[in-house]
Design a protein around this nucleic acid. Structure first.
Lengths: 339, 339
DNA sequence: TTGTATGCGTTATCAA
DNA sequence: TTGATAACGCATACAA
């Protein structure tokens, strides 16, 4: 059964297509009687406007593309929920694609949504992404794009993120205040801005508190498999007998890997070693010991990013110039039993 | 900067639009020389075909709509990942919407993706969904739709799911074999098929093992907030002093709520009470005690559902009739320390 | 081998 | 108040 079209309605009602169109859209230059007739018949024949045709005509798809590293990451799934819900309020639908932390995939998926003529794009960069020519090409094309969470500071577009450096600083300061002195960091890859910032916040907190920064207790987690990265790096740490009394992990999942390894080695948390996470995944509130961490507003970030993006889209439509925004969302310390 | 169109190319190259179109699509009835010219110029002018126009023309959007109860549910986020990845292989993009376990939202979102002219739909029903007229309307419209996980047996469309009754039966049988006799069930709402089936499996296992089914130790979790449902129902259970020695929970999250409540009441698992979950979320492998559960193939389910859907779409296109399929995916018991 | 004409479903301009 | 017509970008049957 094919969909009912304006033409179908016009035939049945024996009036012109344009009259039908106008009636449906509530134009005032159509008589009330015909309008009612049209409305009734549209209802009866279950008329559904073809959004593709409208898109072609209006040059707007009412669709936005979202590219994130991984849907299964709890933080990003929160963001995505925020995006989808907010977009719908404004009549936009969302096409989602993952980069899997892979630069080539990110580029390819950007192409795909561009082909689809999305009105705007939301992106959180992959760990591999160093240069952003692919993003700049989009901007040049005048398609609004908003970066969130994993951003690149050099790109000229709106961004929404947290103050990673400050958050890490707060976390490590908390550890220091609790009396921990030999604090290791389990950091992420060298490329992403938030990985860098969290590291800088860590180091700053040490230095400001008169604790020497020791590169030998910096552990790199860069296999995109946080739990195992945390676990195996903890084995390494244990074998190195370096007297670490606390660990600041750059994600909750790494922290959970750490905790698991300590458990298996009968090392007490926080008595022997404290562990601090980052992101506040649900899991962290129910493992033993419960994990101290940084609360990061995922849903809020998705919502806000979408608002900004849609604002830019509508600005574009109305030919009013857009001002680039940088929005920094607040985080908070969640102190639990692991520190 | 507007996108380059075929017309733009045809002007620059001084040949007809249709020649350009054919050249780009590699039709053999175009000379190699002009084809190369066209290709070169398309590259140079960064030509991106307008998928909307193609959709309008071909009556195919190469888009599928997915409606799930919640993206943040780890099981569904796995399914969604499978769907998106598989769809891309066949050149399809995915629009995702949530029902939030709400029937009205489910209906509305179904409408939205239909308007968008998606080529097919993947859906997992909300807890509230009793009757499926909204689904049947889609089928009548000849838009392929495949149901997965939370299905309705009466609807005439392909379905992919697990044998919930058998899985629950296996879980409870395991408990019985371990010596537990007074086994409570924390079940989900009365409506969803998988909730019903898991309950039936539970009861069957009891009866087959000569254990009387006792409705007084059936606890209903229907607030769509599994963790708290588990937690508060456990408080209720404790107050009832009913000598329960094991609990079969219908989801891992409920089980985690149960465990949390027992912990707070210093009740030992599995010594005092055993707890069994369902779904094998990652969390379950790291909490204390680790949770015995049923492994449910989310990624696989998304992948398979997408394959079936796309198959049906292509069948439709080629006017070859589609046979409705029912695919049952295997599950397995994961035995850990909570039983 | 190439070009012309038509139509997909809708909107918008201009006449009637 | 209504209708005819063109246009959006593309694909295709058919003519040249």
């Amino acid at each position: 059964m094919k969909n009912t079209t304006l033409k179908d309605l016009s035939k049945v009602l024996n009036i012109s297509v344009s009259a039908v169109s106008k009636a449906l859209k509530g134009y005032k230059d159509i008589s009330v009687s015909t309008r009612n007739e049209v409305l009734r018949m549209a209802e009866e024949m279950n008329y559904i406007p073809n959004l593709n045709a409208i898109s072609l005509k209006t040059n707007q798809t009412k669709t936005i593309g979202v590219i994130i590293p991984s849907i299964q990451n709890q933080f990003f799934s929160k963001v995505l929920t925020g995006v989808i819900e907010e977009a719908e309020k404004y009549g936009y639908l969302v096409i989602t694609l993952q980069s899997n932390e892979n630069f080539e995939l990110e580029k390819k998926h950007l192409q795909l949504v561009m082909q689809k003529q999305v009105d705007g794009i939301l992106i959180s960069l992959s760990n591999q992404t160093k240069r952003c020519k692919h993003i700049e090409a989009i901007i040049q094309n005048e398609v609004p794009i908003v970066m969130f969470d994993k951003i690149n500071k050099l790109v000229k577009c709106s961004k929404i993120f947290i103050d990673d450096q400050q958050a890490a600083y707060n976390a490590v300061t908390h550890l220091i205040n609790k009396g921990y002195r030999r604090i290791a960091i389990f950091r992420g890859s060298l490329t992403p801005q938030n990985s860098i910032d969290r590291f800088l916040g860590y180091r700053k907190a040490l230095i400001e508190n008169g604790i020497e920064f020791d590169p030998s207790i910096v552990y790199l987690c860069e296999n995109n498999d946080d739990f195992n990265d945390g676990f195996t790096n903890t084995q390494k740490l244990l074998s190195e007998k370096n007297n670490v009394d606390a660990i600041f992990a750059i994600t909750d999942l790494i922290a959970v890997g750490i905790i698991e390894c300590f458990k298996q080695n009968s090392i007490k948390i926080p008595e022997d070693v404290a562990v601090f996470g980052f992101s506040d995944w649900f899991m962290s509130s129910v493992i033993t010991p419960t994990l101290s961490t940084i609360k990061q507003p995922g849903h809020e970030m998705g919502k806000k990013a979408t608002q900004i993006l849609i604002q830019e889209i509508e600005n574009n439509n109305n030919k009013i110039p857009t001002i680039i925004q940088n929005v920094v969302l607040p985080t908070s310390l969640i102190i639990r039993n692991s520190t």
